[in-house]
Design a protein around this nucleic acid. Structure first.
Lengths: 142, 142
DNA sequence: CGCGATTAAATCGTGCACGATTAATTAGAG
DNA sequence: CTCTAATTAATCGTGCACGATTTAATCGCG
């Protein structure tokens, strides 16, 4: 309730989010990926079935104005393909290329490295994650 | 430990941070402020004593390359002043103008509005804030 | 069938956010 | 004192991230 940044939950999220991206950076630099690109690939790695731009956007809560340029960069890197759907030509279907699937194994060590940097147990991480996700839901509804 | 975005603590922070900024947006739009600008002003409102660019950066964990343009915008809006320090001409001292101090009262309702949107009690908010801040510390050290 | 409304992606403009570099000033070791 | 090392802002280039708008395709109601 105080006005100091250090006391505000919004700043905690803001600041911890940046710290998280910095923790990822050295790992992702080796793969030539940015953190949002890694998130998009994670979405594809865990459900690589006719993902549309909108579908990815719903999952990651991102707009097409953010995703379109990002996906074009991933396409330029040869990691994904972007093709208009036959059934509905408004939609663009995003699929992993062979290289995009190979990146999954190249990045296999990343989650463990990050988990170590948190200095928390898996249980603690999961509990905090659920709490933060609940807060997110409340904010989205309000 | 799974690879799905929904299961990752990093994504929870990332996503909740965005949701938080969207919760602030309608409130800050009325004041003509962006969320990072509001954070900088909060830092000044709670300790308006010869804050340097570096000092604000340490407090908010932001680089001068982020702060310099942001502070120039706040200066253009008439909310802060930027003056080279006499004692050390490398430093730029940021101070609130009268208008910048007046903004504090104009924004007085914001924290309560946000607290309501979280759907959490103050105790819950504070506990979550501390947990997230602890995670941030671990990440910064690692 | 036809046409207004909806939906999907892309485009545009603004503002972070960072790493790397630069320019200017100060501190400090010899 | 001097000159090298450090510190401080600012600058530059890249990549998000969003709201607002645009374009194109599909839906649905009569």
């Amino acid at each position: 309730m105080t006005l100091a940044p250090e006391d505000m939950i919004c700043f905690a999220l803001y600041s911890a989010g940046h710290a998280m991206q910095k923790a990822y950076r050295p790992l992702l630099d080796e793969l030539g990926l940015t953190y949002p690109q890694y998130l998009v690939l994670s979405a594809l790695w865990t459900k690589d079935a006719d993902q549309t731009v909108n579908g990815i956007g719903r999952r990651l809560q991102l707009e097409s104005s953010t995703l379109t340029p990002l996906l074009k960069r991933l396409e330029l890197m040869g990691l994904v393909s972007r093709t208009r759907s036959d059934k509905d030509e408004r939609q663009v279907v995003i699929a992993l290329t062979a290289e995009g699937r190979a990146m999954k194994t190249r990045a296999a060590h990343v989650p463990r490295c990050i988990a170590e940097k948190t200095g928390m147990t898996l249980d603690e991480i999961e509990r905090l994650r659920d709490d933060v996700m609940r807060l997110r839901s409340s904010l989205r509804e309000a």
